[in-house]
Nucleic acid binder design. Structure first.
Lengths: 230, 230
DNA sequence: TCAAAAGTGTTCCGAATACACCCATGA
DNA sequence: TCATGGGTGTATTCGGAACACTTTTGA
């Protein structure tokens, strides 16, 4: 009604309107010992000083949202080429007591093996730590809700996409893959049924290698077929 | 790396960072004669003057994103209490040649019967028109991609939610409901299978009314059970 | 009586589930 | 030889897909 910007018939300039701050936050997940873990940073300043938060930062004016998220991700983990997908945009007034902040949230899945060497190598100024996803400390802002939403999204996408593979190395055993599914769904799966279902989709192929680890039969290693996304 | 905002250890103020413009755009869909239709407004100014675009506007500093979308929706359709859901946030630099504009896109589904009286009553300054979703004119900005994305989302959600009902009046026939599903999926469904499947979910109940329309057998009217969302 | 949409059942097939034992290895 | 995780098959149940005729109404 009285919002000038909503009437395309009028001449207006974007500069005439107040502009909120826009940040990108990233929910970064990995899988260690069959358990999903989430990277959090401890806040040093008001508001929520001392509390944990998901990493994030302001976007630059000349970069895409996804680029800002990738940049954030690399700063926190030291790793490039990580699976990343937009989750949701949170922008309630008051979610940040400082000023109006709209945050575009992404989530990232990363193979834990890629983290071992370089975690936090690029930036040791902030305290960062991996927490078990299902046992988190109190979180700043609306970050608890953001993480809940991420879990719901992950569970949904697990059913009809190959998103689960993003938590694994390029070659993996079927037991490792099953552990991914169990960690995301947070309940056990039947081994025979799981294998039959995965193999029937015809997206995996055996490598000529096996994985020997511990005093038991070696496991067949698989990889994605060439056409599968990675 | 050199992004100060990404380091929570440093003191910073949101005001120190450049702020993009943020808009909310709304993909507004309805169903008329078994066909999905989309509301577009014609642009009068540069850029894309004369082309059609989905309605949108700037957010106010003290309203939520959803509130901005509802406001926009009411301005365009004159109707309140419409189903609305966030779709995705588009923010590539260069998507708007004027300045950096990030748009949070929502989509809305509305029963066509609620539109008959009041369409455009609230605002006759801009030229607005309903187009068949599968036969659209050339669109401004990245709006064609936004609409494609909406269709994909709708098709996905149709399978595991009750989203389809949002295009219908509170009481409806099973044929009308089937028409919704067929329009979104853009292909026909078997009548017997459709009815069995819908009724087996146990979310509908018969009303004590029927709908008589045309020279044929009247149709049973159904409504949602009390616990179903609407 | 005709045209038009409403309403109704059965068969078939593939996917999901439940369930238990042998295999290969290192210690 | 034992402990450990890898690897395999069958029977049952459930849901999805294919398919055609009768019913009720207004014209």
């Amino acid at each position: 009604m009285s919002q000038p910007a909503t009437d395309p018939a009028k001449t207006y300039r974007a500069e005439d309107f107040p502009r909120p701050s826009v940040t990108v936050d990233v929910v970064i997940l990995t899988l260690v010992e069959g358990e999903l873990r989430l990277l959090l940073v401890r806040r040093r300043n008001w508001p929520f000083a001392g509390m944990w938060a998901i990493p994030g930062g302001f976007i630059n004016m000349d970069e895409s949202l996804e680029h800002a998220a990738l940049r954030e991700l690399e700063e926190e983990t030291g790793v490039r080429d990580i699976f990343l997908e937009q989750l949701y945009t949170f922008g309630d007034p008051g979610r940040d007591p400082r000023t109006r902040v709209i945050t575009v949230v992404y989530y990232a899945l990363i193979d834990a093996a890629r983290l071992n060497v370089s975690v936090r190598a690029a930036d040791d100024a902030a305290e960062a730590e991996w927490f078990p996803l299902y046992h988190l400390p109190d979180l700043a802002f609306d970050h608890a809700a953001i993480i809940d939403y991420t879990i719901q999204r992950l569970r949904g996408k697990l059913e009809y996409t190959t998103i689960g593979f993003q938590l694994l190395a390029p070659e993996f055993t079927l037991s490792e893959l099953q552990a991914v599914y169990e960690a995301i769904r947070n309940r056990p799966l039947d081994k025979r049924n799981f294998r039959r279902k995965i193999l029937s989709t015809d997206i995996l192929e055996k490598t000529d290698a096996t994985k020997m680890e511990g005093p038991h039969r070696p496991a067949q290693l698989y990889r994605f077929k060439a056409d599968a996304a990675r």
